[in-house]
Design a protein around this nucleic acid. Structure first.
Lengths: 245, 245
DNA sequence: GAGTGGTCTAGACCACTAG
DNA sequence: TAGTGGTCTAGACCACTCC
């Protein structure tokens, strides 16, 4: 392939899409080593430079991991990898935090109109609702209420959720082939609702951070919706934008 | 330059630093067109490909703007450019917002220990403290208290601040050669302090979002510290992380 | 028509890992 | 020692802008 016709998208975007397709299909699975760059170039009939551009983009999007002299692998949600990017909290002393999860409840419900809209499912469809508490350095700090479409997580059990190894997104990935690749959050300050107050040990007028998060897998498909309530006198939400020199 | 000695940093990082140096020195100013890629290649004695890599990095960091067939220019904080990246608020309907600033007070003070530490200056050094309100769609929504080291903003007057064209960062840039290239924020939920309550029209127990922001220029130098208080029943803080397909 | 950044190719050497 | 991604070069054509 020596040229491209005008009005086409760049060739490396096509290559990028082809790689994403293989990931979506499960042809290359999380943790797998994908073919080397010369192999990919041959496979897609483009030059190595073009493959490299496509892979670079996917690396910067944290879908792939490139390691010199070892190879390129598909990202997983296992501990210690870059998917902790999705957890941007720190304590007030910039020190390490001990985080312990505690499952509060695990139920099946039918979607009402509002939640259905958030998850892109019809009202009346079956959902899981999971209440999950996190203790930071021993103190109950973060309350998560998570909604999942049952259709995408068939056979998920309370036991499986509670006794997962690693993060929640790691569970989605290893058991349901659902890799979370993007999140979108809206942050606001509210007075803690009662069900949160009780768990976090707060008074009626105490403010909490409320984070409404949509989590997406490949193809911009919403997989999870969650409301997170945080006692920010213990743990702060961090954000950084711009140049790092 | 055909090879690089081992243990060196990559050549394109060197080129990137050389470009940043010219920006820091003011040799290329915000809004300027910088030399073309072949010219840069000649200037730094590297190949065009290496220059392109360095420029690509600076573009993704929003320091430079590349436009095909026109040239590469230095970012400015003017309206409508990408530095609105630093303003991640939306209203609750995802519609356009009308934002009007209103200066509340403009004072000179001496740094106490705490603020001094935040700004990297000694206690007792002269600072500006500026209280600035923002009305969104006519409603007072956002209260900013801004600290600036007077040393870096000599001759800044209330009149100049109040009658600036464009954003505050645009003022820093055009009048003081201070380009903000990175911000770091800590977000928490608190009960509005009285001076905020009065301006935002809130009750004593109403929660607000508090955002503590450090703003940096080239060389990782803190230029501004501000505390922002937001009534999130009007305007939400947005954040997005990960893959965009 | 000259010049620009956008895209793409082809091929080189490097440092290091794995076997 | 073979193979990998990391880096770097040289040069090509493209679509479009500006003069």
């Amino acid at each position: 392939m020596n040229k491209r016709s005008s009005l086409d998208q760049p060739l490396y975007n096509t290559v990028r899409s082809l790689i994403l397709l293989k990931l979506r299909n499960g042809e290359w699975k999380p943790g797998d080593k994908i073919p080397t760059e010369p192999e990919l170039a041959k496979l897609f009939s483009v030059s190595v430079g073009t493959v490299r551009k496509a892979v670079e983009d996917l690396v910067s999007e944290q879908v792939l991991i490139r390691r010199a002299r070892i190879g390129t692998t598909v990202s997983t949600h296992e501990k210690y990898n870059q998917f902790s990017t999705f957890f941007n909290f720190s304590n007030r002393f910039d020190s390490e935090m001990l985080i312990e999860p505690k499952l509060l409840s695990f139920k099946k419900i039918l979607a009402n109109k509002e939640i259905g809209k958030s998850l892109g499912v019809k009202g009346g469809e079956a959902l899981f609702v999971i209440d999950n508490l996190r203790l930071i350095d021993g103190k109950p700090t973060m309350f998560d209420r998570i909604w999942l479409p049952q259709r995408k997580f068939t056979q998920l059990t309370q036991n499986e959720f509670e006794n997962r190894k690693g993060s929640i997104y790691s569970l989605y990935q290893s058991q349901f082939m659902m890799t979370i690749v993007r999140i979108n959050e809206q942050v606001e300050a509210i007075q803690a609702p009662e069900f949160v107050r009780l768990e976090l040990g707060l008074k009626k007028t105490d403010p909490v951070l409320k984070i409404s998060r949509y989590a997406y897998t490949y193809g911009d498909e919403v997989v999870e919706y969650r409301n997170r309530y945080v006692n920010t006198s213990i743990s702060l939400y961090q954000n950084e934008i711009g140049l790092r020199e």
